[in-house]
Design a binder for these strands. Structure first.
Lengths: 114, 114
DNA sequence: CAGCATCCTGCGTGATACTG
DNA sequence: CAGTATCACGCAGGATGCTG
């Protein structure tokens, strides 16, 4: 769980950074530009199969974790009707190609059985 | 958790297939050819930071899961001193480039730690 | 709107002991 | 050697209600 993991096995670090059901998809959604909390939530619901709702606690946690890893940045506008934007950091953007690789694999090997 | 996930979000399927601490590393180890149970276990211990031992139950489960996903194949020699080999299937090999991408990312963005 | 507080549940992970 | 059996635990994940 310490830095050694990064050295000995980058994969472990990668897995830890994107562990959870939504992190990768959040990063992917954010690649097109900043998004608000609600937009992310709705975007997540769109792709899911039967997910009706996402527990705020869960999404909140994912977002916070991503921010702590330095992959995304939270921008609070501090307005009366709250408005918060999340955007990829430079580190976060470095993830995009990897996610793209994963998605390409999926499209190739999951038959994209539409 | 059904096929819809594969369609709507390949990433979810990917995550499910390689969920767990060892699966990705097992696949990676296997890319160089078939390996025996003990070899895999020892290989896993080598890269880890402080991992003393891997619970057989855990490794066993990972292996079984990978086999059920059709990513690896179990070959039991049925000899008196048990000998079992695991090898990548065609599907399993399709994972290698993706893992390579992850590792490349790690070497690029985590090498600061080394 | 964008969360936080609280409670609950399942499963992934680990340790130990045993077996064909 | 290559596992299985059993017990235990932490934490991710979900549901509901409340707030600034």
């Amino acid at each position: 769980m310490d830095k050694n993991d990064s050295k000995g096995c980058p994969v472990l670090t990668f897995q830890r950074m994107v562990s959870g059901k939504y992190k990768i998809r959040i990063l992917w959604d954010l690649k097109d530009g900043p998004r608000r909390y609600g937009e992310i939530r709705n975007g997540l619901l769109r792709g899911a199969s039967g997910s009706r709702e996402i527990a705020p606690r869960v999404l909140s946690r994912e977002l916070k974790a991503l921010a702590e890893f330095g992959l995304i940045q939270r921008k609070d506008f501090g307005t009366v009707p709250p408005k918060v934007e999340y955007r990829l950091t430079r580190a976060g953007k470095s993830f995009v190609p990897v996610i793209a690789a994963i998605r390409r694999w999926g499209e190739r090997h999951l038959t994209a059985a539409a």
